[in-house]
Design a binder for these strands. Structure first.
Length: 438
RNA sequence: GACCCGUUCGUCUAUCGGUUAGGACUCCAGAUUUUCAUUCUGGCAAGAAGGGUUCGACUCCCUUACGGGUCGCCA
């Protein structure tokens, strides 16, 4: 039996991390077992569906790298993959229910008559769970077809899973109590039930249910902040799943290799944005400079900063300094061009070194006289000027950094010297004496 | 309210009856770097509570508390 999983979002809002993780687990499970991953759009609620939402789902999944084998834009033998276009299929299956005498009309809608008995499911994550359907007050017969003739979620969802030969349904725990209903429907329809795995929900840092507007909820926000897709995938995989080892940083391929439903937790996990950023930093440090340049360039251009000849070298210098790629412009602006701001605090601290502040012109001249410009040559020049001023070279490193970059933090001073070049270093030393702070 | 699931450092987690309860994020300290950061080392910090079962319980059972979910002609 070939594994077939699916992600079945309804296009009523942007793709959120909870949905993305559900998609991810289905994708990982399918890839791990050499099966197929299907994308099915559950757009039966016409009033709430929007084109933007549908596009957001496609974009979000594509960005995360969760490619589907069957579905919109991809085709397949079980289409169409939009429920809004499967009307005939549902009519046919509904007739089976009617023929079996399992539905009855109520206020114009059709209700499915449950068998009044305990229903047991064997969930791959939750284990054996039994719901007693003899308690009618807790499990009233459910509407499967509305009075306007349209079908409700439970019915189309079950029919599609049957029609599409889905073998494993991995979905949020909010569906756990729906599963006995689906099992009863499948029984009445004469179908073979897929295996179910209900994964815990993702909560906000304060433990409340994560919903729209909450920080980190929208997958569409991640690209804009400069997250790497693989990092986001890595982080959300860690929410409710563990490799059972001390390792935490995984590539997509490594996740596929290690993923197992047995290692999915039962308790809901809280979303920790700080750790998410840390995971991103780990992935940034692992990618090559070229990949980093490709990812960072749009952010630099959007910030209106120049892209000089030594752009790649500059990016290499700041690559391991940022957690999010959106931080690149602020981290590299002084290397990319001359229009950067000076940090008042750093400037004040640097000028506090009066020996250095008084030797700016001497330093500039010394730099100009250096035969071949290099970080080492510049440092030698710095040391000479410092010693002649009666200061220790080491004490001038920090103020020189501030004079050249305008801030206290940044790449290695040697790299700064090299990337800036003699001209700029000299100009910035002379400018530093009179630069206004802020 | 009824029903279902859950509960280990602040957060994500390991542990599947015998461990000084381990790792990671965050935070703090030290070391290294003639510079900031990185890095490295170390530190703070946990079994919800009460009963059982057992030679022995974080681990199994029960109760309570707390958290989440579900009870729609939403999905």
């Amino acid at each position: 039996m070939t594994v077939r999983t699916r992600f079945a979002p309804s296009p009523t809002g942007y793709l959120h991390v909870g949905g993305a993780r559900t998609a991810l687990f289905n994708w990982l499970f399918a890839r791990k077992h050499g099966g197929s991953f299907i994308l099915r759009v559950e757009d039966t609620d016409e009033a709430r569906n929007t084109d933007e939402a549908r596009q957001a789902i496609f974009d979000g999944m594509s960005w995360l790298g969760l490619d589907w084998d069957e579905g919109p834009g991809k085709g397949g033998n079980s289409g169409p993959y939009f429920q809004s276009r499967r009307r005939d299929i549902y009519d046919a299956w509904f007739q089976k229910l009617a023929d079996a005498g399992r539905v009855y009309q109520d206020d114009g809608a059709w209700r499915f008559r449950f068998e009044r008995r305990p229903v047991t499911m064997n969930d791959l994550v939750c284990g054996e769970v039994t719901i007693d359907y003899r308690d009618e007050s807790n499990t009233p017969d459910m509407v499967v077809k509305r009075s306007d003739g349209s079908y409700v979620f439970h019915f189309v969802n079950v029919v599609d899973d049957l029609e599409m030969n889905i073998t494993h349904v991995i979905r949020g725990e909010d569906h756990l109590m729906n599963t006995p209903k689906h099992l009863q429907l499948i029984g009445a329809l004469g179908g073979k039930a897929p295996q179910y795995a209900h994964i815990p929900l993702i909560l906000n840092p304060d433990g409340s249910k994560m919903s729209k507007r909450d920080a980190g909820a929208a997958v569409g926000d991640y690209p804009r902040q400069g997250f790497l897709p693989a990092a986001v995938v890595n982080f959300i995989a860690l929410l409710g799943w563990s490799s059972k080892t001390d390792e935490e940083i995984f590539t997509m391929a490594e996740l596929v290799e290690r993923f197992a439903l047995e290692n999915v937790n039962r308790a809901p996990a809280r979303f920790d944005f700080e750790k998410c950023k840390w995971v991103n930093q780990q992935h940034i440090s692992k990618i090559g400079v070229e990949e980093f340049v490709t990812a960072a360039k749009p952010f630099v251009e959007a910030a209106g900063l120049p892209v000089p000849e030594n752009f790649t070298a500059i990016m290499a210098a700041v690559k391991d300094k940022v957690r999010l790629i959106e931080e690149v412009p602020a981290a590299a602006d002084f290397l990319l061009g001359d229009g950067f701001a000076y940090d008042p605090e750093a400037v004040a601290k640097a000028r506090g070194n009066t020996a250095f502040a008084g030797a700016l012109e001497a330093l500039a001249e010394s730099f100009e006289k250096t035969a071949d410009w290099s970080a080492d040559a510049a440092k030698t020049a710095l040391a000479e000027v410092a010693q002649s001023a009666g200061a220790k070279p080491g004490q001038w490193m920090f103020p020189l950094r501030v004079a050249l970059s305008g801030r206290a933090h940044g790449p290695d001073l040697g790299e700064i010297l090299n990337l800036l070049g003699r001209e700029r270093c000299v100009a910035r030393l002379r400018r530093f004496g009179s630069v206004s702070m802020g």
